[in-house]
Design a protein around this nucleic acid. Structure first.
Length: 573
DNA sequence: GCCGTTTTCGGCCCGACTGTTTTCAGTCG
């Protein structure tokens, strides 16, 4: 019954794949294990349930052998093959595979020849020797590995989507000023809207490869990692790696498709291409060695008999199958958003006054805007007492009349869910509000059971419309509190309480996978910015990208409704 | 190790850059 087994099994197979890589085993066998990992991670049901049946259904990428290992796991809670491999490869080596410039082959040679097991061992080896001829490492390779270790120790490995998009836009502005650059576009995981990004990919279109690559190498950087005619990689001062790829106009569409990834998605697309007699690479789409004109990514997918798949869906998580069976979702777009339902004013910890918020919402073309300041328990956020809340309600009432016909204003609150699951304001107060968001802001350390009960109590409250940032995580800073997400989405659907996708780039909460789960159970989602300053309204894009990655359509999102439909939803009792 | 509307064997996506090589391995995406 437990999804935790899916993750445990996936991580066992992942470790096996890593170990086989160290042992220089058949690369296709390694890929088979990695495919199985992806397949298990994207399952919507428990793998234990599937393989406990006498006649289990087919799971993509799992054949006879892996099925046997899954059954072994079900019986014994372990896979003996992994233990066997771990006798040959010390587990400590696995933690070192993220050192840039030091791959599994070299690492394993270091282990075999010098018994290197830990980071300290590697450091000692490469910092005390300028060359290691017997494992074919000379001065330059040693230098690269040393740099890789320094970067690894600084620990900054992934960047938020917000940071990545901001840096990308700045770089593109500079790149477009380079002579003979026709266009430049973001590719890679940033274009796919992933919540964190390892390195930034930018695709550049030009005819003058040599001079453009030279100019790219002159952009501000800390280190040049690679410098060729078609590829330049820089390490920026903040340790973000940027890969520039240079292509000509004819190849641009195929290159964009290629460098957007994901790798797994591309493998599938290329397999389809091969089956139909095509060849697809970053330079073009070919049929029997004849290049087919592709002006856009749409042309590529169409030529292969597929519909256009948006970058946010390209993760090989069922999008190809959905496309072939005509079930690809028509995902929600930024333009579909009709209002922001989570906004803080200077009554609590926001920086704008009420009219500034309303004015900004009008400027953005919103049909409605909600004012949802913190409640009294959020002391550090200057939460409103009941008296101050009613003071604010009075002011909002006046503004409602003043802006009538221009925008609809909803008076609300972001109410704290207290430790016992009760809310910060009584129902007698909540009933006077147009909209209520309930959020957890304290007591993160409780058990899964207690956390889940707290949230469900709020979901069941007849005045609560939205659960704010449901898992409480802050990306790379604070893990989500433990929740039984399936019970939560079921209850949310039942009680017509929407779950928030908080668009703040460190939250993105719910995340893409949870959003997809919520949709599957019929719960509504609401994409909000949790705005505290005027610029924060821009974060809506991050929330929409997350929603797209969760396969959400316009109809799955509360704040795509027009005002009268929204009012109907908010009257849940 | 997986997979099959040309195949139950023999494929498996494909290419760039670097360093140590003189034809290629390792790493990366």
């Amino acid at each position: 019954m437990s999804f935790e087994d899916n993750e445990k099994l996936a991580s066992i197979f992942e470790t096996i794949a890593d170990a086989l890589e160290f042992l220089n085993d058949n690369p296709f066998k390694i890929r088979a294990y990695r495919n199985a990992v992806d397949s298990i991670r994207s399952l919507n049901e428990s793998i234990v349930d599937i393989y406990s049946k006498s006649n289990p259904k087919k799971v993509e990428g799992i054949g006879k052998d892996l099925e046997q290992k899954i059954k072994e796991y079900i019986d014994t809670k372990k896979v003996a093959y992994l233990d066997e491999l771990l006798e040959k490869v010390p587990y400590t080596l696995f933690q070192l595979k993220d050192i840039r410039g030091l791959g599994p082959k070299t690492l394993y040679k270091m282990f075999e020849r010098y018994r290197v097991r830990t980071l300290e061992d590697v450091k000692k080896l490469v910092f005390e020797n300028d060359e290691l001829k017997d494992i074919s490492l000379l001065e330059k390779s040693i230098k690269k590995i040393r740099e890789g270790i320094e970067l690894f120790e600084e620990g900054q490995s992934r960047f938020s989507l917000g940071a990545s998009l901001l840096i990308a836009k700045g770089l593109i502005e500079q790149i477009l000023k380079i002579d003979y650059v026709v266009k430049a576009e973001i590719a890679g995981s940033t274009r796919r809207g992933k919540e964190t990004v390892g390195d930034l990919d930018i695709l550049i279109c030009t005819k003058d490869f040599k001079n453009v690559s030279k100019a790219l190498a002159n952009l501000p950087h800390k280190q040049i990692i690679a410098l060729g005619d078609t590829k330049v990689s820089l390490l920026l001062s903040n340790n973000m790696q940027v890969d520039f790829r240079i292509v000509d106009d004819e190849s641009f569409a195929c290159a964009l498709q290629y460098f957007t990834g994901s790798k797994e998605h591309n493998v599938r697309v290329r397999e389809i291409a091969i089956k139909k007699g095509f060849k697809l690479n970053e330079y073009g789409l070919f049929f029997k060695d004849k290049k087919i004109e592709t002006k856009s990514e749409e042309d590529i997918y169409k030529a292969l008999g597929l519909c256009y798949i948006k970058p946010t869906l390209r993760e090989n998580k069922g999008e190809i199958e959905a496309c072939l069976s005509n079930n690809l979702p028509d995902v929600v777009e930024l333009e579909d958003i009709k209002g922001d339902l989570h906004v803080h004013s200077n009554y609590s910890d926001g920086l704008m006054n009420l009219e500034e918020i309303i004015q900004e919402a009008i400027n953005r073309g919103y049909e409605y805007i909600a004012i949802t300041d913190h409640s009294v328990s959020s002391y550090v956020a200057n939460g409103l007492s009941v008296e101050r809340l009613y003071e604010q309600l009075n002011e909002i009432d006046k503004l409602k009349s003043k802006y009538k016909g221009k925008i609809n204003i909803l008076a609300g609150s972001e109410v704290d869910i207290k430790k016992d699951g009760s809310l910060d304001f009584d129902d007698s107060v909540l009933k006077d509000l147009d909209i209520v968001i309930a959020s957890i802001h304290q007591g993160f350390g409780n058990s899964k059971d207690i956390n889940t009960k707290r949230i469900i109590a709020a979901i069941e409250n007849p005045y609560v419309n939205i659960i704010g940032h449901p898992t409480g995580r802050l990306i790379s800073q604070r893990p989500p509190y433990e929740l039984d997400m399936q019970s939560i989405v079921e209850k949310a659907a039942k009680h017509k309480t929407a779950l928030e996708i908080n668009s703040f780039y460190l939250r993105l909460d719910l995340n893409d996978e949870h959003a997809r789960l919520a949709k599957a159970f019929g719960a509504k989602l609401c994409i909000n910015t949790d705005t505290h300053t005027k610029d924060n309204f821009n974060y809506m894009l991050f929330g929409v990208l997350t929603a797209q990655r969760g396969w959400l359509e316009k109809s799955d999102c509360l704040n795509t409704l027009n005002y009268s439909k929204l009012k109907q939803f908010l009257k849940k009792r």
